[in-house]
Amino acid sequence: MVSENKAAYPTRSPKRWVIGITGASGAIYGITLCRQLLNAGFHLHLVVSDAGWRVLKEELGWNVSNRLECVNSAFGSAVSEGRMTYHPLNDIGASIASGSFICEGMAIVPCSMGSLSAIASGASTNLLTRAADVMLKEGRPLLIVPRETPLHAIHLENMLKLSRLGVRIIPAMPAFYNGPQSIEDIVHFIVGKTMDNMGIEHNLYKRWGQPNE
């Protein structure tokens, strides 16, 4: 007979998200999202594709020769305090590769068309795409911020396929009704829209109809 002792069931952590950064332009979106989530008290598990590291170097000027040191430098005490865990791309035995790893979901920000294609086809070729596959099979939230233009039919078909599976597709398309005055304002809008879809409160951008303060 199965025991009804509730202690036998795993304890759910409502403060844990997996964040993926791939080789699409716009790595600043992913880094900003991580910082916002850390400031809000969430625990993060970060995985970055090889192309993602190239974009961090080219767009943000990061020295990525030592990736772990790079993460330590970018997120400081969050790493030493255990609030940020970095997983190498090829560590297929990492915790986030298993469905038994309990988390709120995963956001891939930004997401390249190559990674999106792999996820849509179920090709778990590395830890990032495996973690995304886990979200799908476990029925957990998966959010993707694609950054590509123009889009051809294969891109659109892959996004439609994932959308039909319940994946939230949040294109990196900034709005201008909020009167952005800087690149930071534009970045905050995309990150804010992502956090909206994660169900996380923020004040990163002025919403439509919101009065000036």
Results as ranks from 00 to 15, higher is better:
91 D>E: 14
101 F>H: 13
42 F>L: 08
95 S>R: 11
137 K>M: 03
87 H>I: 14
122 G>H: 11
162 L>Q: 02
129 T>R: 13
102 I>K: 04
157 E>L: 14
67 R>F: 02
162 L>W: 09
68 L>K: 12
67 R>C: 02
76 G>W: 07
114 G>I: 13
147 R>G: 01
53 W>T: 07
105 G>S: 07
159 M>S: 03
124 S>W: 10
54 R>T: 12
48 V>I: 15
44 L>Q: 02
114 G>K: 15
79 V>S: 03
158 N>H: 15
120 A>I: 08
45 H>M: 04
131 A>D: 04
61 G>R: 08
129 T>E: 12
48 V>W: 12
95 S>T: 11
159 M>C: 02
40 A>Y: 00
35 R>F: 04
120 A>D: 04
156 L>H: 07
102 I>H: 07
108 I>P: 00
160 L>F: 08
128 L>P: 07
132 A>N: 08
107 A>K: 03
133 D>Q: 12
113 M>Q: 09
144 I>P: 00
37 L>R: 03
98 S>L: 12
145 V>N: 03
45 H>Y: 13
48 V>N: 04
83 R>F: 04
139 G>H: 03
107 A>Q: 00
37 L>D: 02
119 I>P: 02
84 M>Y: 01
123 A>R: 14
45 H>G: 00
149 T>N: 05
56 L>T: 01
81 E>M: 10
36 Q>G: 11
118 A>Q: 14
63 N>C: 05
51 A>Q: 12
38 L>F: 09
46 L>P: 04
162 L>E: 03
139 G>P: 00
119 I>A: 11
130 R>W: 07
37 L>F: 05
146 P>F: 06
42 F>P: 00
103 C>P: 00
139 G>T: 06
122 G>Y: 13
147 R>W: 01
150 P>Y: 06
37 L>A: 05
125 T>S: 15
43 H>D: 10
63 N>H: 08
117 S>D: 15
59 E>C: 11
104 E>A: 06
57 K>M: 14
81 E>S: 13
140 R>M: 07
110 P>M: 09
110 P>Y: 05
113 M>W: 04
